[in-house]
Amino acid sequence: MDRDLAHLTDEAVLSLVAESDDEALAELYDRFGGVAYGLALRILRDESLAQDAVQEAFLAVWRTADRFLAERARASTWILTLVHRRSVDLVRRQEQRRGEPLESAPEPVASEQVEEQAAIRFQRQVVQEALRQLPPDQREALELGYYAGLTQSELAERLGQPLGTIKSRMFTGLTRLRDLLAQAGLEESLR
């Protein structure tokens, strides 16, 4: 069967996934697999664990897409939320890694080696620019919380700050990031 799913929105593809259409699952993977794997690798720093996280997340998409559809939220947000969650679950089981210094996050492969949609590349630039506009302590709280898989309490301990301070940096930082992205018109560029 030769079908072209490329013109469909992510949500339309997801609704096909909800009907057990495996070509639609392949299409979603082709759209977000690179971002998903990049995120998992950044958090887990291990190719095999990162693959496990991506696999579990996409299979969760396969199994529960029908339930998610009623949410009317963005498909990409849901998929990446699942990938992040699986990655954090796995990294928190890697006890020895948790003791490593925070600075040691390596940069994975250079982005030009990865084929991906221009829209995603553009979105990445917008996000990185928005992050640069945040006050450094807020950016740090977001990056260490989100990419290192640390809990807010662990972060407070590592940075020698009161928990309340870390919580409020995360809140203010993420709220501001949301507003900066909205200003940059990211919502529209994704559709």
Partner: peptide, 24 residues
């Protein structure tokens, strides 16, 4: 949505073709 944008902000990486096959 903002947290998912952070996901996109991570450096991309190329998963193996084998992973795609395994998932499907």
């Amino acid at each position: 949505e903002a947290a998912a944008a952070l996901a996109v902000g991570a450096p991309p990486a190329k998963p193996t073709l084998e992973l795609r096959q395994r998932i499907l």
